[in-house]
Design a protein around this nucleic acid. Structure first.
Lengths: 229, 229
DNA sequence: TTGACATAGTGTTAATGTAACACTATCAAT
DNA sequence: ATTGATAGTGTTACATTAACACTATGTCAA
């Protein structure tokens, strides 16, 4: 007869830090809580993990239920397990984070939550629970990550210009980059294939369009290749 | 009345990947399971999290109960939440990792486990549950971490030679380093204070002893200083 | 005492990578 | 034809990294 553990258990939740880029500013997705505790306060989307779903699945499900977001690529961040995180009872939360393009996931309507909105990371309101701490951790991780992995390409349309790509990096890192150095570097990886088309956006010189060579990226990554920006 | 979550809950455990250095080789601490499932198999030390202890506390407690290790500095690694990790029931495990010096924590006697032993990382036996996967993740993280944080100093005695420090790094990274470049780099950080003493170990030239300036390290770290090796 | 051995300690150089810098090109609109 | 707006392009000084070999100082044994 298999032994099972019978003592009181902590509840398990997931929380998602979804960063959004709208070509200029880095934003975070927050929901307004519909229920107590912290009713009416802003918080990260998230909720309880079911016994028959993985953590990743739970995070994806909650994101869809509370903010209408689907097909988001989530990455695990950290697990928060302090005793008094939740005033109701002991709750351990596995935090996830992600970076999406805002145009595609425009301010979706909330379903479980009272409201869901994108806030510029520089202007987030006071958050429920320990969510401010989680957000800080996610931001630090994102900045670190973006420097050595070409995370940005998935956020852009299949065809994009180097300027778009650069703006994306600038928004995430919160700094300005030198155009020539940036182009030299990213082209040097050999992962961008120039297309025959150009993009005309307004009354100025059209820009060369590129696409991202995902296959080549996967191969190089397996060999431990280093894509440090 | 506060709402509490009443659905069936996953069990929460912690698992610890403790790496040990004995001046030459990198080892891992494993325990032999005393109970089913996987009775008699080798596994990472770990166990259930109690409702009234944090994750960090649980990891520390289990390490002491199962392997007699105390005062280990643990860092959270990743949380593993696949559905069939444990054949008994749904178990989510928060993994921790650490690096200790072996001399100080010599093969302690096990209490909860049948046995506890250090295995060279190149010779670990087949492990219970998904612990092989956890170990791989920890090893990758350790290698990444050691390159940009002076993690090694806590593992050495308060007074140590540069050769000792270099051997430590070589063992963790699994590569050889150039002596002169290594010395130049680590001394360049200004975190090592040369002592007036030397160390005499055998029939050869005595080596200069250093100590680690922890205060200075903390200050520089706060300013976002980069200690990349 | 002297020679063998074992580890400590020490600088230079070539190659590479990074960061700073300004001007020309091409389109649309007027 | 001029203006406005963004695209696109090289060079150089500087910093970092990687490769490389010899001398110094102690013990021990002959």
């Amino acid at each position: 007869m298999p032994h099972t553990y019978q003592y009181p258990r902590a509840a398990l939740t997931v929380d998602c830090v979804v960063f959004g880029l709208d070509d200029s500013e880095l934003k975070v997705l927050l929901i307004e809580r519909a229920l107590d505790p912290f009713k009416g306060k802003w918080a990260l989307p998230g909720g309880f993990v079911r016994v028959d779903e993985t953590l990743d699945d739970a995070a994806r499900r909650e994101l869809e239920e509370e903010a209408g977001l689907k097909n988001v690529f989530l990455e695990q961040l950290y697990t928060f397990g302090e005793l008094k995180r939740d005033p109701r009872e002991r709750v351990v939360s596995v935090a996830y984070y992600s970076l999406v393009k805002l145009a595609a996931h425009d301010t979706k309507a909330a379903t479980d939550a009272a409201d869901a909105r994108w806030f510029p990371v520089s202007k987030v309101p006071k958050l429920a629970f320990d969510h401010a701490e989680i957000l800080d951790a996610a931001l630090a991780r994102l900045k670190g990550k973006v420097r050595y992995q070409p995370i940005g390409f998935e956020l852009l349309p299949p065809k994009f210009t180097l300027s778009q790509l650069q703006h994306l990096y600038e928004a995430v890192l919160g700094t300005e980059l030198d155009k020539r150095n940036f182009r030299k570097k990213v082209l040097g990886f050999g992962l961008l294939v120039p297309l025959k088309e150009t993009q005309m956006t307004g009354r100025h010189r059209p820009a060369q369009l590129f696409s991202f060579d995902a296959d080549k990226y996967e191969k190089l990554k397996k060999r431990g290749f280093n894509f440090e920006l």
